[in-house]
Amino acid sequence: MITIERLNKVFESKSQSVVGVDNVSLTINQGEIFGVVGYSGAGKSTLLRCMNILERPTSGKVYVDGTDLLALPPKRLRTARQSIGMIFQGFHLAMSKTVEDNVAFALKAAGVSRQKRKERTLELLDLVGLSDKSDQYPAQLSGGQKQRVSIARSLANNPKVLLCDEATSALDPNTTKSILKLLKRINNELGLTIVLITHEMEVVKEICDRCAVMEEGRIIEQDKTYNLFASPENALTKKFIKTVMDFEIPNELYEQCRGTIVQMKFAGKKAEESIVSDLLKEFKIRGNILHGKIDYIQKKALGIFVMELEGEPEEIRKALESLEQNLEEVEVLQSDRTVHRVAAGTE
């Protein structure tokens, strides 16, 4: 659906050149929700704006549904853009126009008759759950409702692609979830390809099929969303994952524990198996769960548990070896402090 080849965008000024996008290549499939995540300044919004040539790339290729957008003359490019909807963090609504008029704007620009504009606008407002707000003005709406109007407007011309630039960043967590559910429903019902730019890994976890991580204008890692969460390779990706999956163990708890504290990551079916209980039966150790959580990403389980293991050092060693053979990730957060105390006293 969307193919980007060796894309570069350099911003020139009198004093310097700033690289916004650095040699990026991506393929986004028909009907998927593709996330691009990165911190501010990573180049993700610039990349998104290059996808519909709101920013003209310095070099490279952009294909949407087989059409080379950069090869189109201005008039044909404007026509091609009608198949690409876009929503923004700041909503970009006309405050002096009603909700209905805001949604109908793109239809009017496309030359659609008044009657058909009316029918299509009411259909879209029903789709986004705002049938009763058609005569109101943006100032009378909540942030979530404004974003729903923006989504309805972006769908007016039956686009094949929807580009979302930080579409939930200005919203509270509950409203964010409702907007993400709406986008997922639109994706399912209309078969729309959605590209979602965000700096929040929680957003990616909720609805994205695949994800790319950007840093300094480059794609540093990309994969299916579940795979990125289960087995991140890049240090920045791991940092993003920690904002969603990790939790801090209080220092007081560390002080109270005398055994070996280990953090374990369970992926897929292993998150539903009795690996820990089997471990406690097989080896002469005792286990105390300190913390844990299971998330479901793309309907597959991913769990992280922190556990204190107590027992003879050799049994602990064997148990850790067994965990490392069975799990995606095992990290010892604190070694057996009782053993260390005895060793220190011997010296």
Rank of each mutant, 00 (worst) to 15 (best):
L48C: 03
V24N: 03
K242Y: 05
V112L: 02
I275M: 01
L127M: 08
D165F: 08
E200Q: 13
F283W: 03
V18T: 14
T27K: 13
Q140T: 00
V64K: 03
A106D: 03
E55D: 06
Q256H: 09
L236N: 03
E315D: 11
A344N: 12
R78C: 06
L127P: 06
I33D: 02
E32M: 03
K270Q: 13
L141M: 07
E100A: 14
S15F: 15
A94E: 14
N288L: 15
N102M: 05
L130N: 09
N52G: 00
F229D: 14
L280K: 09
V19Y: 06
T237K: 07
N23W: 14
D278S: 04
V103E: 02
I179G: 02
E329S: 08
L228C: 10
V262Q: 00
L77M: 00
V24H: 02
S17A: 11
F105L: 13
L163D: 04
L162E: 01
S231N: 15
F91N: 10
D336F: 10
G345D: 15
L54M: 09
R120T: 11
L163S: 04
S322C: 11
C164Q: 02
N234I: 15
V244R: 00
S274R: 04
E248F: 08
D336N: 05
Q30K: 11
L54R: 03
I220M: 12
S40Q: 05
G191L: 11
L196T: 06
P57D: 11
N227M: 06
S335M: 13
E215V: 12
L302D: 07
C208Y: 02
G85A: 08
N188I: 15
T225G: 07
L69W: 00
E310G: 10
L323S: 04
F247V: 08
D68V: 00
T27C: 12
L69F: 02
T338C: 03
G345W: 14
T260H: 11
L47N: 06
L192P: 04
N188D: 12
S335R: 12
K14C: 15
L320H: 05
S277C: 09
Q140N: 04
G85C: 04
I249V: 10
F34E: 06
N288I: 05
T3G: 00
G111R: 10
T27Y: 15
G345I: 15
V149I: 05
K293C: 08
P159L: 11
I28R: 01
G303K: 12
S25H: 12
L309I: 08
A343E: 15
D68P: 05
Y254R: 01
Y296V: 00
C257T: 12
A104Q: 06
L190A: 01
M264Y: 03
G311P: 01
M264H: 04
L107S: 06
E189F: 09
R81H: 06
L309E: 04
M264V: 07
